[in-house]
Computed example of a mutant assay.
Amino acid sequence: MQLGTRWAAGAEPPARLTPEFIAQLRAVEADLPPDEEGIAQWTLTWLDGRPVAELDTGVIVTLDHTGGVVVRHDDEDEFG
């Protein structure tokens, strides 16, 4: 795992993320309560060369083995 960076929800994400990945981050942010935007923080790490963005609220955005963007919550079983 490679540590990436942190940024506030609603702020500009790292440029090395794909447009599809960023679009999904924005979709997650659109569902945040107004008092969370700018306060909730994304944490970006890299696992096996793929981005894993986790929001403080427990939402995780990552790529599957085919390169598709996947959104899940940290209490969901990744393999279930």
Rank of each mutant, 00 (worst) to 15 (best):
A15Q: 06
L44A: 12
W7R: 00
E36D: 07
A23G: 09
W7P: 00
V69K: 12
R50E: 12
F21K: 04
E37A: 15
E78P: 13
P33E: 13
W46C: 00
F79A: 01
L63G: 03
D75W: 00
A27Q: 15
W42L: 11
E37S: 06
A11M: 10
D31R: 13
V28R: 02
P33R: 14
T43W: 11
E20R: 06
H65Y: 07
D56Q: 09
L3Y: 15
W42D: 08
E37R: 15
E29Q: 07
L25K: 11
L25A: 13
I60A: 03
I60E: 13
D56C: 08
D75F: 01
W42H: 13
T45S: 09
A40R: 07
A9Y: 12
P33D: 12
F21L: 09
T43E: 15
L44D: 03
T18I: 02
L63R: 13
D48K: 06
F21T: 07
R16M: 06
F79Y: 00
V69G: 09
L32C: 05
V28E: 14
D48C: 02
P33H: 10
E37T: 15
D48Q: 08
R50Q: 10
D64N: 15
H73S: 00
T57H: 07
Q2N: 10
D35R: 07
P19V: 01
T5D: 10
T43I: 09
E76K: 03
D74M: 04
P51W: 10
L47V: 06
G80T: 04
P34H: 07
G10E: 04
V69H: 09
P13K: 01
W7N: 09
Q2I: 12
P51R: 11
R16E: 14
T57D: 05
I22Q: 14
T57R: 05
V59F: 08
D74N: 14
M1V: 06
A30H: 08
P51V: 10
Q2C: 02
P34W: 02
T57K: 06
F21R: 06
V59S: 06
G68C: 11
E29S: 14
H73Y: 05
W42R: 06
R26F: 01
I60F: 11
T45F: 02
D64M: 12
V71T: 15
D74Q: 06
T45K: 02
V52A: 04
L55M: 08
L32M: 13
P51K: 10
G38E: 08
A8S: 13
I39P: 03
A15F: 03
M1T: 13
F21P: 10
D31A: 11
A30R: 12
L44S: 12
H73I: 01
V61C: 14
A53P: 04
T18Y: 02
W46K: 04
E37I: 15
T43P: 01
R6P: 04
V52E: 04
R72T: 04
G49R: 08
A23T: 02
